[in-house]
Amino acid sequence: MASLQHIRRRIGSVQNTRKITKAMEMVATAKLRRAQQRILALRPYAIDMVEMMMDLAAYAEGTGGFDLLRTHAEERTAALVVMTGDSGLAGAFNANVLRMAIEFERELRGRDVATRLMVVGKKGIGTLRFRGYELHETWQGKSDRPAYGDAEAIARRLIELYVSDAVDRVHIVYNHFTSPLEQTVTHTELLPIKREELFDERRERKPVAYIYEPDASAIFERLLPAYLEIAIYRALLESSASEQGARMTAMRNASDNAEEMISSLTLALNRARQASITQQILEVVAGAEALG
C-alpha cells in the first residue's frame, strides 16, 4: 500500500493540475465568446458586400474575363490552405484538421495534382514540417485573434498564384464552428469563385438607375477579391472559435477527470490512514496483553 505521504503528494499535484485546467477552461470560454461576437459582427459587412456584387454582376454579365471566376480547364496544381491553431491542448482540434488535410493531399497526389500547402497556425506548420511536407507559405500568431488584414494578406497571395496560373484550384480545410461543443472539419473550394454564387438569373435587376463610378463592371472586378477575403476571414474566425470551443471542452473534461482522481485518491488516503490507526491499536492491545 502506498504511503500516506505519497498519496498526499499525489493529491496535491492533481489539485494543482486541476487549478490550471480550470483556469484554461475559463480563459477559453471568454475567448470563445469574443470569437463568436466577431463572427456576428462580420455578417452585415458580408451581406452588404455580396448583395452589391450580385447587383453589379447583372451588369457585368457578358463583359467576360474576370480572372477569379475563370475556371482553369485542367487541375494540375492546387493550393491547399490548412487552418490550424497556434497552441495545443485543444482536444482533437488540430489533429482532425491535419488528418483531413493529409488525406486530401494524398488524394490530389493520386490524381497527379501537385499540391502547394499554405498553412495557418504554428501547430499545423510544426506537424506538417515534421512529416516532411514542403510548405509553400505559412502564417502564424493569428489564431488567437485573426484580423481582417490577415485575411487580406492570405487572399492576395492566393489571387497572385491563381491569376499567374501557378495554381489551378484553391482548396481550404478548416474547422467549421457548429456550436461550442461541436466542430466539423470542412473542405471547400475557394477559387475559382463559383459563378452561380454571384450570377443569379432569377435575381431581378435593380429598377433603380444608379450612377456607377467607375462603370459597374469595373467596380465588380475591384470588389471581387473582397468575396475571397470574406470567405477566408470567416474561416479564420470560425477556426479560432472552434479552437476555443475545443479547448474549453478538453479542459472541462480534464478538470472533471482531476476531480474524479482527487476523490478516489482521498478515499485511498482515508483507507490507508484508517489501516494505520487500526494497526497501531492492534499493536497497543498486543503489547498490553503481552505485559499482562
Partner: peptide
Amino acid sequence: GILKGHQPLVSL
C-alpha cells in the same frame, strides 16, 4: 459630397 436628395450612386 452627398446631400439629401442625391441621385442613386455606387462608387468605389
